[in-house]
Amino acid sequence: MREAAAVDASLRRPGSALRGPVFGVAEQDPSVGPEWRVLKPMVNGTPQICRETPNGPGGPMAGATRAGLRDFAYRGVRFPGDVRRDRSGAVLTHPGIVLLPACFGVVERERTGWEPALALRPTAHDARRVLYDAMAEMWPMLYRFDESTKALYAKAAEEFRICRAGRLVRTGPDGPEPAAPVRRGRVRAKIHPALLEDGTIIHDG
């Protein structure tokens, strides 16, 4: 039946393209019947997101986590003063906490501890793939490494780890907290040199 339905669908909608697997949340309630009922749209790219947020993280642990984060703000001297002031103010203006799906990133061992190295990804596998692609392909190509430098980077890969990052959004009477001016105007560190349309690589002095 599945194959026949697929053929029929391809004839009815010949312009459709295969997107790949998507995931949602379904429930089977014996009191209603043997069928599965879809509770959340089948739109997520990974099953992990569905597992962590069918109705937002719940239960005693999630409640304890939200309570513990309600007064959280950046207070260490490593953060600029305007960032510390902005985060302290958000505790008062947006005291509510909404936990977002966990994500994963690459961290690098520095003199002061482990520091973020690359962008956050939805799964640990994606984070590992980004690290491998960067060190084995992207960086050697961008910087035109010789063979000895490539070998050094392969060894340096041992100094990276995959971390699990929890995320949250603060909420208040007027809804979710908007992006703070100090975050909107802050220039992010560049991972790679600028690449012009003609292929020219611009190295910052």
Rank of each mutant, 00 (worst) to 15 (best):
V32Q: 12
L100K: 04
M138C: 06
D86K: 13
P54M: 01
P41K: 03
Y153A: 13
M61E: 13
D86P: 04
V83S: 01
V32N: 07
A102I: 03
G89S: 12
A73G: 05
G33H: 10
A102K: 10
L152Y: 12
D146K: 08
P140G: 02
A73I: 05
P60K: 05
Y74K: 14
G33I: 07
R121V: 00
Y132S: 00
D71H: 12
W36C: 07
A90C: 06
G45N: 06
E35K: 08
Y143A: 13
V91A: 09
P41E: 00
T93Y: 13
G63V: 11
E35P: 05
I49T: 11
T53W: 13
R78A: 15
A127F: 00
G68H: 11
H94K: 12
E147M: 08
A127H: 02
C103T: 14
R85Y: 05
T46L: 05
E52S: 05
Q48D: 07
I49W: 02
E108H: 15
P60V: 07
G58M: 11
E147D: 12
P122G: 05
D146V: 06
R66I: 02
P101C: 04
T123S: 02
F145N: 05
A136W: 02
R37N: 06
A64P: 11
A67H: 14
Y153H: 15
Y74S: 07
P60I: 06
P54T: 02
P95I: 12
H125E: 13
L142P: 02
R121L: 00
V43K: 12
V107I: 06
V32A: 11
Y153F: 15
V77W: 03
L69E: 04
Q48T: 11
G59D: 04
F72A: 10
A134E: 10
R121Y: 00
A67Q: 14
M138I: 14
G76D: 11
C103S: 15
M135I: 06
L142Q: 05
L142V: 13
V107T: 04
G68L: 12
L92W: 13
M135D: 03
M42I: 09
V106F: 00
A127Y: 00
G68R: 11
M135T: 05
N55Y: 13
A67D: 09
L120F: 04
P122T: 00
M135K: 03
G89K: 14
P140K: 02
A102M: 08
L99H: 07
R128N: 01
E108P: 04
F145H: 12
R66M: 11
R75C: 11
V130H: 01
S148K: 13
G58V: 08
G105D: 02
T46C: 06
R129W: 00
P34D: 07
V91G: 07
G58K: 08
G76W: 08
P41Y: 01
R51D: 08
S148Q: 14
E115Y: 14
